[in-house]
Amino acid sequence: MTMPSLLLVPGAWHKPEHLQLLIDEMPDIDVHTVALTSCGDDPKSLGDMYSDAAAIKAAVEAIDGPVVVVAHSYGGVPVTQALVGTANVESIVYLAAFQLDAGDSLLSSVGGNSAPWWQLHRTEGVGDYMTVAGPVGVFYGDVDPAIAEKAAAELGYQSYAAITQELTAVAWQTIPSTYIICEADNAIPPFAQELFAQRARKTLRLNASHSPFLSQPSTLAQLLRDELTSAEDPRPSLNGGQRKAA
C-alpha cells in the first residue's frame, strides 16, 4: 500500500520555510506545503481566512492520491473551512491548532479579546494587520536559540481579518481527525487545546512548545508517520485513544 501524501499548513505569521526541519526528517514521504495568503511580507497584499481556505483546497486538489493534512495553530481554521467535500483527504492532524465549529472565528474562540502579544496595526490605506511581541518566548520556548531567532526574523505580517471571520463549513465532522496537544505551549494554553481536542477522534501529546517542528522535528515526524500509516485503517470512535510521545 502506498503511503498517503502529507500537506503541511503553517499557522499565523509563519511560512512554509518554517517547516523545513520537519520536512528534512521525512525524505521518503511525499510532503507538500501551502503558503497562506493571510501571511506575507507586504501588509497591503494580505488575504483573509477564506482566501487561505481556497489556497488549501487548491493544494489538496493538486495532489494525485490520498493525503493527510496537518494544520498548525491558526492553520486549523482555514483547513476546517477548506476540506469539506474533498475526495482525497484521509485525515486531518490539528497540531496545537484551532479546531473550531461552524459560526466560530479564531477571535471568538479566545473570548473576543486580543492576546496581549498580538500587536494590531491600523494604517490608512492598508488593511488591519498584526505583528507579534516577543515571538521567541511565545512560539519557540524550547527551540535552540539560534534556530528560534532565525525563525522569528522570518515571520511575516498577519491579516487581522483572518482571525475575525467565521467558519461556514466544518471538515472534521466528516473527516477523521487527530489532535496533538503541545503541553509546554505559551501561545495556545494547553487547557484550551484540551477543549479543542474533544472534537478530534484521537488525541496525542508532546512535551513541547508551540513549534515542535523546530524543537522536536524527529519526534513530530514519527508521530506523523504513524498517522500516515494508520490513515486508511478503520476509523476509531470519537476520542478513541490517547498516547504521549516520548
Score class of each variant (00 low, 15 high):
138 V>A: 07
182 C>K: 01
126 V>E: 13
83 L>G: 02
79 V>P: 05
147 I>F: 09
115 A>Y: 10
61 E>C: 02
244 K>V: 15
144 D>C: 14
65 G>P: 10
126 V>A: 07
201 R>P: 01
239 N>W: 08
142 D>F: 09
233 D>T: 12
176 P>S: 00
148 A>G: 15
229 T>M: 13
100 L>K: 02
226 D>G: 08
85 G>N: 12
209 S>R: 11
132 V>A: 05
206 L>M: 15
171 A>G: 01
127 G>I: 09
153 A>H: 12
164 T>G: 03
134 G>P: 10
95 L>N: 06
160 Y>V: 06
201 R>V: 01
172 W>F: 00
149 E>T: 13
190 P>A: 08
142 D>C: 12
84 V>A: 14
28 D>P: 07
81 Q>L: 09
179 Y>K: 00
9 V>K: 02
95 L>S: 08
232 E>W: 00
48 D>E: 09
44 K>L: 13
121 H>Q: 14
75 G>F: 01
57 K>L: 01
217 P>D: 10
105 S>G: 08
76 G>Q: 03
172 W>K: 00
7 L>G: 04
23 I>H: 06
49 M>C: 14
129 Y>E: 07
224 L>R: 04
199 R>M: 11
47 G>T: 01
20 Q>N: 13
161 A>I: 02
36 L>D: 11
131 T>Q: 12
78 P>D: 05
168 T>I: 02
227 E>A: 07
87 A>S: 13
14 H>I: 05
85 G>M: 12
162 A>I: 03
238 L>V: 04
234 P>I: 08
185 D>M: 07
223 L>I: 13
26 M>S: 08
116 P>S: 13
137 G>A: 11
164 T>S: 08
38 S>Q: 07
138 V>E: 06
125 G>E: 14
185 D>P: 13
83 L>V: 00
95 L>W: 01
130 M>C: 15
142 D>Q: 15
46 L>A: 05
197 A>D: 14
32 H>K: 10
65 G>K: 02
5 S>D: 12
2 T>E: 10
29 I>M: 14
73 S>A: 14
228 L>H: 07
210 H>D: 14
40 G>K: 03
73 S>C: 13
218 S>M: 14
177 S>M: 00
39 C>H: 07
2 T>K: 11
242 Q>N: 11
91 S>Y: 01
187 A>R: 01
119 Q>S: 10
92 I>C: 10
110 V>A: 05
19 L>M: 15
182 C>Q: 04
114 S>Q: 13
223 L>D: 02
147 I>V: 15
95 L>Y: 02
100 L>Q: 04
52 D>V: 00
121 H>V: 12
67 V>S: 02
22 L>S: 06
61 E>H: 04
127 G>V: 09
